[in-house]
Design a protein around this nucleic acid. Structure first.
Lengths: 125, 125
DNA sequence: TCAAGTGTATTAGCTTTCTATTACACTATA
DNA sequence: TATAGTGTAATAGAAAGCTAATACACTTGA
């Protein structure tokens, strides 16, 4: 996994777990990799993993069980809300940044379409 | 100006200057506010401003003149490239993050359209 | 010439983040 | 019961970012 050095690692790990849950690699009630396993996999210190997970625990997204491991919540309300939040925040970010460039909303959609079309063409590698 | 505490302030200021140039609040050859003025306006230390500007200077986006001030480059090649880079990087970020959620490109456009429509409706405040 | 306003540089100290290490509490199982 | 594997906690040190303060180099204009 690659980290952006402009953002705290623990925060990026938190976002990573969000994505793993939303994509379905981690499903309701299932166990996460061990904190120590995650530390090895992501080549990061145990404390940094713990810092990320402690925030997810506060949010009731994952449930810790001493001596056993960490588990994804089975509360579907939380899980469906999570998906909406993460996706919406992506669009929020794009919208705000492009609006700051005086780009009108209709143009944002057009430009995204153009960007994606170009990306398809550029796949000749 | 509001800063995101997850990203270095100097970096956000750099992005801010990019936007001011692209939007046209700062035009080719024109003088930027003084470093000390910027420090007051953004309620940030002079050194933090200096750190942001030093990167813009390395990129030849702004040109410093000792005893006079900092000026936006008159090199149109740099300025037009800048605009493209900034806008493209916004789409890059959105694309990567949504792709990580297994959202196909066509859906991204649809969802952005829906998001923008909702935002219009929500303007009833 | 001199004073005020520029950019530039340096030092010191604080806070946050990350790492390394050690220790402890709990669970499962041999 | 003992051991290995969990989460949890605390301490110390390094690095990055930010602030505060001071000083210096250059330009402009009175």
């Amino acid at each position: 996994m690659q980290f952006n050095d402009k953002v705290p690692i623990y925060y990026q790990i938190k976002q990573y777990v969000y994505r793993e849950i939303i994509v379905g690699h981690l499903t309701a009630g299932h166990q996460l990799p061990t904190i120590r396993q995650l530390a090895v996999t992501l080549t990061v210190n145990v404390n940094t993993i713990q810092r990320a997970l402690s925030e997810l625990i506060k949010e009731n997204v994952i449930i810790p069980q001493r001596g056993k491991g960490n588990f994804v919540t089975t509360d579907q309300t939380i899980l469906t809300a999570l998906k909406q939040q993460v996706i919406t925040s992506e669009f929020d970010q794009l919208y705000d940044n492009l609006a700051a460039l005086n780009i009108p909303p209709a143009t944002m959609v057009q430009q995204l379409q153009i960007y994606i079309d170009q990306r398809k063409d550029d796949q000749h590698d």
